[in-house]
Design a protein around this nucleic acid. Structure first.
Ligand SMILES: [Mn+2]
Ligand SMILES: [Mn+2]
Ligand SMILES: [Zn+2]
Ligand SMILES: [Zn+2]
Lengths: 153, 153
DNA sequence: ATTGTTAATGATAATCATTATCATTAAGGT
DNA sequence: ACCTTAATGATAATGATTATCATTAACAAT
C-alpha cells in the first residue's frame, strides 16, 4: 500500500465518520490533492481528474472542496487572480503548515516550512497578545510575502 | 484647510505628476478613501460617492482603484467574500502599515498597528533569510489572523 | 474666454468564477 | 436484488469584474 493510499484512507474516514458517502468522484479528487504540491484551481482539478474519471462535473469539484475546507482539511487561497486555489493542509509528503512567497509577475508560489527560530516564537506570542487585547479567538493565520522571483528579475 | 484635504492634495499630485487628469469623480473617490478606516468594496464606494457625485459610474470606481493600486497607494484585499476590498496604504489619520484580525463569522476586520517588539524584529529577519535562500525580491507582506470576534463567541 | 485635442467617463454588453436547480444516478444499508 | 436518499452533473442563474464605444470634460494652446 502506497503512503499516499494510506493517507487517503485517513481522509476517507472523515467522509464515513460524518455520514457522507464515499464516491468515485470524491476519491478521484482526493487522489489528485494528495499527489500534488501545487495549488490547483477548480478548473485545473477538473481537468486533471477528468483523465481518471472522465464524467467528473465541475459542480462536484466545487462541492467536494467546500466540504474539505469546512472540515479544515483543505485550505482555500486567493492569490489575487480572480479564482481560488486549493491545497491539502496535512500532506502525505510531510509538507505540513507552511507560508508562501508569491511572485507578482509570474504568479509562481513557493512553499516554505523551514521556519527560523524567530518565526516559531513570533506567532504564538503575537496570537496570545492579540487574543487578549481584542478578545478574539484566533484559529489560524495567513502569512504571505509578495515580490519578484528569480526567473522574473 | 483640513488635514485630510492636505492629504488629498498629496494624492492628487500623483495624478498630475504621472500625466493623468484630475477629475471630479477621482476627487470624490479619494475623498471617500481618506475619510474612512473601513475596507470598502467597490459597491460600497460607489454607493457612498453617489451622495456627493450622483453621476458616478461603477466602471470609474474600478478604474480609479486600479490606478491607485498600481501606484502602491491603495491595497486591494480579498477576505474570501468573492469581492475585493480596498484601503489607503498611507492614511491621514496616521494608520500606516498594519495587519488584520478577521472574524470568519461576521467578517469584521480589526486593524492593528501596535506591533510588539517581537513582531518588529521578526519580519525583517524572515524577509532577509527568504530573499537570500530563494533569490526572491520581497516587496511587501500580508499577515492576517483568522478567528472569531467577541461579538460572535 | 474660446477652441481643439484627447483622456476620462458612464451606459451597456461581455466574460468569468461561483452558486442554485433539478432530473437522474448510484452508495450503502436492508 | 431492492430501497432510500445522498450525490452527481447538465444547465441556468448570479454576481463581480472587464471590454466596448459613443459622449463628455480637462487642460494646454491660442
Ligand atoms: Mn502552499
Ligand atoms: Mn486595514
Ligand atoms: Zn516570477
Ligand atoms: Zn464576528
Amino acid at each position: 500500500m502506497k503512503n499516499s493510499d494510506k493517507f487517503i484512507s485517513g481522509l476517507v474516514k472523515n467522509f464515513k465518520d460524518k455520514g457522507f458517502r464515499l464516491t468515485a468522484p470524491r476519491k478521484a479528487i482526493l487522489d489528485l490533492l494528495v499527489n500534488t504540491n501545487e495549488h490547483p484551481s477548480v478548473e485545473e482539478i477538473c481537468f486533471d481528474v477528468h483523465k481518471s474519471y472522465p464524467s467528473i462535473g465541475i459542480t462536484t469539484v466545487y462541492r467536494t472542496l467546500d466540504l474539505l475546507v469546512s472540515w479544515g482539511l483543505v485550505h482555500k487561497f486567493d492569490f489575487g487572480e480572480g479564482k481560488a486555489r486549493y491545497e491539502l493542509i496535512e500532506h502525505p509528503k510531510g509538507i505540513g503548515h507552511h507560508h508562501h512567497l508569491i511572485c507578482t509577475s509570474c504568479k509562481k508560489i513557493i512553499n516554505y516550512t523551514d521556519f527560523i527560530d524567530k518565526e516559531f516564537n513570533y506567532i504564538p506570542k503575537v496570537e496570545t497578545r492579540l487574543s487578549k487585547k481584542y478578545n478574539f479567538k484566533i484559529q489560524n493565520h495567513l502569512i504571505e510575502f509578495y515580490g519578484v522571483c528569480d526567473n522574473c528579475m
